[in-house]
Design a protein around this nucleic acid. Structure first.
Length: 456
DNA sequence: CTTAGGG
DNA sequence: CCCTAAG
């Protein structure tokens, strides 16, 4: 351990707590923190300290232990639905429950996590007992960190940064950011995955994070310093005595998308900049909102330049940040590809029309359950969308339609049903329509179509 | 999670 | 199809 580990440890803990607090009340298990190898990575002597020849205590396990990885027969990483699916955890067949939540929904949730602007992913350890955290102390060494999160938790949405600092001249404050810790990432790979693929996975994850746009936060005594306009002097970050209380954080930008996440439980929607829960003093307007980017950039640049000025410890991480292009769009598409297109077959359209005729247009989940229960790739949203396009299709000239032609008969029913349910507030039709209704087209209607309900 | 709509 | 605000 480091000679000054005690101090750093405590100091760091405070930072964590504060951060957790600031990020929306997330709590971080203190117990685990103490032994968290991460701490080692994070702590390092302030340059001020005399006996600081501290080599960054590398993370304990430079190499992930296969046993530490949660094995999944079906990689959660495969967030794709193309290939006739059937690789989902809760695949049909094993779906004895007349319960809702089509498996697809589960997938979508995960997808959602990948794209969501909400970074916080607080899974229960059910499937991810260990989380891998990369420590960018020059050599990015992944490590595993055991957590005992019970109800959600943790992982603040920010990257805890570290910094050693010292006072040099009278008017300059120099910082040395030893390393930044990237946000916690959960990664699951099949037992059969190769070490190489694992490395790539981790790399992708890290790269995605670094390249996804980050905001730098400044912590003073563990509390975020939000006023970007104050000077260091005003903030009290200039005097030597206070430098130890300074900290930096990297926070994912809202649009960011964490890479491979293997979370099982719904994340606690936590806005990256969730500070709402902490009506901390003064301006609680997150830096995000307040002319965000520009300030952030400035800060980042400053940090960078200052760091470079220090010969002692070239902050690799910062350089990385400067190099990684911020190409969120591209990156995201790589990680979270769109589901492959799956044109509805006439059969499906038939089923959809049938269901809508009976249930109306405001109960897509019911439609899903009723006619597409086993079509994992059709979510109720998909059905709703399809109906939308069907209505449109029915209205346009046949020449303008594309794809497998839908029998005019069906299109007619679409219009009929659409017309009917439009004026019958489908949504209000009690959930218990015991009787099965059927709308049949009739002639003479004002608009050509008129619905007639018939009990069967 | 569902709906309802815009993208 | 995706994304999201609402409920």
């Amino acid at each position: 351990m480091l000679g000054n580990s005690g101090d750093m440890e405590n100091g760091f803990s405070r930072h964590l707590e504060a951060d957790a607090l600031e990020t929306g009340g997330l709590t971080i298990d203190n117990t685990s923190n103490l032994k968290d190898p991460m701490d080692l990575c994070m702590k390092f002597p302030a340059l001020i300290n005399s006996e600081n020849d501290v080599k960054l205590p590398s993370c304990r396990d430079p190499v992930p232990k296969a046993s530490n990885l949660r094995l999944m027969n079906d990689s959660k990483l495969g967030i794709r639905d193309d290939d006739d699916n059937f690789s989902r955890c809760n695949k049909p067949g094993t779906k004895p429950r007349a319960f809702r939540l089509p498996s697809r929904i589960g997938d979508r949730r995960i997808r959602k996590l990948l794209t969501s602007k909400y970074w916080k992913v607080a899974p229960k350890l059910k499937d991810c007992e260990l989380s891998k955290v990369a420590c960018l102390d020059g050599g990015m060494r992944p490590l595993y960190r055991k957590r005992k999160i019970s109800n959600g938790v943790s992982m603040s949405s920010s990257i805890i940064g570290h910094q050693a600092s010292f006072h040099s001249k009278d008017s300059h404050v120099k910082f040395s950011i030893k390393s930044f810790r990237i946000p916690e990432i959960f990664i699951e790979v099949p037992e059969t995955a190769t070490v190489g693929s694992l490395k790539r996975t981790v790399m992708e994850a890290v790269t995605a994070i670094l390249g996804g746009g980050l905001r730098v936060g400044v912590l003073r005594h563990g509390k975020k310093v939000r006023d970007d306009n104050r000077t260091l002097l005003q903030t009290g970050i200039s005097s030597k005595e206070n430098l130890d209380t300074l900290g930096f954080t990297l926070e994912p930008s809202p649009v960011q998308a964490p890479p491979t996440v293997c979370t099982e439980d719904p994340p606690i929607p936590l806005p990256c900049d969730s500070t709402q829960l902490v009506p901390s003093s003064g301006n609680n307007i997150d830096s995000n909102h307040e002319s965000g980017s520009s300030h952030t950039d400035k800060l980042a640049d400053k940090t960078l330049s200052d760091s470079r000025a220090l010969v002692p410890v070239p902050p690799v991480c910062v350089e990385a940040l400067a190099v990684v292009p911020v190409n969120q769009k591209a990156r995201r598409s790589e990680l979270v590809q769109r589901r492959t297109r799956r044109p509805f077959s006439v059969l499906e359209v038939e089923a959809l029309v049938q269901a809508v005729e009976e249930l109306g247009t405001g109960r897509w989940r019911d439609v899903k359950l009723r006619s597409f229960e086993n079509a994992d790739h059709r979510t109720y949203v998909d059905l709703k969308d399809k109906w939308k396009t069907l209505v449109h299709t029915a209205k346009i000239a046949p020449q303008q339609r594309r794809g497998e032609p839908v029998p005019q008969e069906l299109l007619d029913r679409v219009l009929a049903a659409h017309a009917y349910w439009s004026q019958h507030q489908a949504k209000q039709h009690g959930k218990n329509q015991a009787a099965v209704l059927k709308i049949t087209e009739t002639h003479g209607g004002r608009n050509g179509v008129e619905g007639e309900i018939r009990l069967f």
